[in-house]
Design a protein around this nucleic acid. Structure first.
Length: 321
DNA sequence: AATCACGCCAACCGCCCATTC
DNA sequence: GGAATGGGCGGTTGGCGTGAT
C-alpha cells in the first residue's frame, strides 16, 4: 500500500518524505497545540504504536487530546480514523465473505449509502471498507450495465419502503411526514431523484432511441445472466448476444443464479414504482417503458446515476420475449 | 519491455450534528 | 439562544499493484 512510499521498516521517514509530509496543512487546521505542524499522509508504524499506547491508557474518544498528550503530530480526526479503520481490536481483514457481500447488498438496498449503519451490522468491518467495496462494485456493474441488486432484494426493499411510506404519509402527499421518516429517506431521495431524471430524460428520449450505442445493456443481458452463472463456455456461447459476460461483472456471490422469475418481479416492481411516483411521473414512465419495449431499446431506470441509489432505481423495463 | 487502464484502499476533506459553555 | 468544540459521516482523492495490450 501507499505506506511504503513514506515509511521504512522502522517507521522513519526519509528527509524528503518527511518534508513532503509536513509541508501541507491538514484539514484539522494545519497546526495543532502550540503551533505544531500536523502531519498528513500515511501513518508510520511508530505513529501507530504511539496511538495504540495512548488508547490503551486513556481509552477511545477525546481524540484531539491525543496530539496534546502523546506528542503525535496528527489531528484528532486522523487519529480516530486510523484507530477505527486499522488499529482497533477485532477488526476483520481480508476479502468479504459471500455472506457479508449478501448482507451488504441487502443493507444497501434498504439504507442507501449509510456506511456507518451498515458497518454496525458487519462486526469487524469498517464503514470505509464497505464504502470502498460498494464503490468498486458499482463501477464494475455500471460498466457492465447490470443491476446492482438481485431482484429479490430489490423487491423486498421496495415493499418494505412502500410500507414505510404508506405509514408515513407519502400517499397522502404529506411531504413533512415523509421527511420525518428517516428509515426510508434514502429510498425516497432516490425515487425523487429518479423522478427528476425521468422528467428530464423525456426530453431526450428520441435522441436516445436513435443512437443504439447509448443503450444500457443491462435490460438485455439480465434475463439471460440471471439464469446461469458465468463460465467460459457460456461466454463463448453468448458473446455474440451479450454485451457483458465478464466474471467480474457478476457478483462474487451467486445471487444471479437465483434469478428465476425475474420478469415477474420486474412487473411487480414497475407497478410499485408507478404507485410511488404518482400519476404524472408514472405516465411518463409508462410511456418510456412502452417505447423501450417496442423499440427494444431497454431504456429504463437503470440510466440514472448509480450512487446512493436503492433498489428501485436500478430496475429496467421488462425485456420483450 | 513499456505503457495503459483499472482495482484496491488508505487517507483527506468538508459538512453536519450533538454537546458544552 | 448562540458560539465553540468534538466527533461522526459520506464523498472524494491519490498512490500503488497488477493484468492486459
Amino acid at each position: 500500500m501507499s505506506h511504503t512510499t513514506y515509511e521504512s521498516d522502522d517507521g522513519v521517514l526519509s528527509k524528503d518524505q518527511a518534508e513532503s509530509a509536513l509541508a501541507e496543512e491538514g484539514s484539522c487546521g494545519g497546526s495543532g497545540n502550540g503551533g505544531v505542524v500536523l502531519k498528513k499522509g500515511p501513518w508510520t508504524s511508530a505513529e501507530d504504536a504511539i496511538l495504540i499506547e495512548y488508547v490503551k491508557k486513556h481509552g477511545e474518544g477525546n481524540w484531539n487530546a491525543v496530539q496534546k498528550h502523546s506528542g503525535l503530530s496528527r489531528c484528532g480526526k486522523s487519529c480516530r480514523l486510523r484507530w477505527a479503520n486499522h488499529l482497533r481490536p477485532n477488526l476483520k481483514k481480508g476479502a468479504f465473505t459471500q455472506e457479508e457481500e449478501q448482507l451488504i447488498i441487502e443493507l444497501h438496498a434498504k439504507m442507501g449509502n449509510k456506511w456507518a449503519r451498515m458497518a454496525a451490522h458487519l462486526p469487524g468491518r469498517t464503514d470505509n471498507e464497505i464504502k470502498n467495496y460498494w464503490n468498486t462494485r458499482i463501477k464494475r456493474r455500471q460498466r457492465a450495465g447490470l443491476p446492482l441488486y438481485p431482484p429479490e432484494v430489490s423487491l423486498q426493499a421496495l415493499q418494505e419502503s412502500q410500507r414505510g411510506l404508506n405509514i408515513s404519509g407519502i400517499n397522502t402527499g404529506d411531504k413533512g411526514a415523509v421527511e420525518s421518516s428517516p428509515r426510508n429517506s434514502g429510498l425516497l431521495d432516490a425515487l425523487l431523484h429518479e423522478a427528476k431524471t425521468l422528467s428530464s430524460a423525456k426530453n431526450h428520449s428520441s435522441e436516445k432511441s436513435s443512437n443504439s450505442s447509448t443503450v444500457t445493456p443491462g435490460c438485455n443481458v439480465k434475463s439471460e445472466l440471471t439464469d446461469q452463472a458465468w463460465s467460459p463456455e457460456r461466454e463463448k456461447e453468448t458473446t455474440n448476444r451479450l454485451d457483458i459476460t465478464r466474471p467480474d461483472a457478476l457478483l462474487a456471490s451467486d445471487w444471479l443464479e437465483q434469478g428465476s422469475g425475474y420478469i415477474k418481479d420486474q412487473v411487480i416492481i414497475t407497478d410499485n414504482i408507478v404507485t410511488l411516483l404518482g400519476d404524472d411521473l408514472s405516465s411518463d414512465y409508462k410511456q418510456m417503458s412502452a417505447g423501450a419495449s417496442t423499440s427494444n431499446q431497454g431504456w429504463g431506470l437503470s440510466s440514472c446515476a448509480w450512487n446512493n441509489m436503492p433498489a428501485v432505481c436500478q430496475m429496467s423495463v421488462p425485456v420483450p420475449a
